[in-house]
């Protein structure tokens, strides 16, 4: 079977790759593009380790076929930090010790970033339900949830001041 040529955008840059037609986006990212930050934990959509953004929506990349991303936009963990600046979530995960083994961490950060973009001030319950598709077996989630809520508080502090100024 001939491999398919796919043109897409990954982390804001145009990219192209060859893939089998039935290959998952997860495998294409990892094997064709060497973007191994996206992890495979189950390949059945049940663990969240392979979370990526597809056209601005959080999806499990194991449940996307690689050819589907033709002309679309994919965001992975590798694109979360900007230059040498960590995203506030990444910094808070470090400060809160919100990772132990770290295999689930990329998926959590991609998913939590999607949460804060949609809901900048989530309650603990909202954060827990949004992240229920990301399994972590090490932490009991406590420090992860704290890191996410603290990130929201910090980002809102900044944003809040700016908004108040604008509204004032």
């Amino acid at each position: 079977m001939a491999r398919m040529h796919v043109e897409t955008t990954i982390n804001g840059e145009s990219a192209e790759f060859l893939c089998q037609p039935g290959e998952s986006l997860l495998d294409a990212l990892r094997n064709e593009l060497n973007l191994t930050g996206t992890k495979e934990g189950c390949n059945t959509g049940d663990c969240g380790a392979c979370s990526v953004m597809l056209d601005g929506r959080l999806v499990p990349s194991c449940m996307v076929l690689a050819p589907e991303v033709e002309g679309r936009s994919v965001g992975t963990i590798e694109g979360v930090a900007q230059g040498d600046e960590l995203h506030p979530l990444q910094q808070k995960f470090l400060e809160h010790a919100a990772l132990q083994c770290g295999i689930c961490t990329p998926g959590f950060i991609v998913a939590a970033k999607a949460l804060l973009e949609k809901n900048p001030d989530p309650t603990e319950e909202e954060a827990r339900y949004w992240l229920a598709g990301n399994l972590c077996r090490c932490t009991g989630y406590d420090k992860i949830i704290r890191a996410v809520l603290d990130t929201a508080a910090e980002m809102n502090g900044t944003n809040g001041a700016a908004t108040n100024g604008a509204a004032g």
């Binding site: 590798e78 470090l94 010790a97 770290g102």
Partner: peptide, 22 residues
């Protein structure tokens, strides 16, 4: 409670786990 030394690699997706070697 210093920040763990291997943390940066893990929050950015750079850390190599078992299946990441080729």
């Amino acid at each position: 409670r210093p920040i763990r030394h291997d943390g940066l690699e893990k929050v950015t997706g750079r850390a190599n786990f078992g299946a990441d070697y080729s």
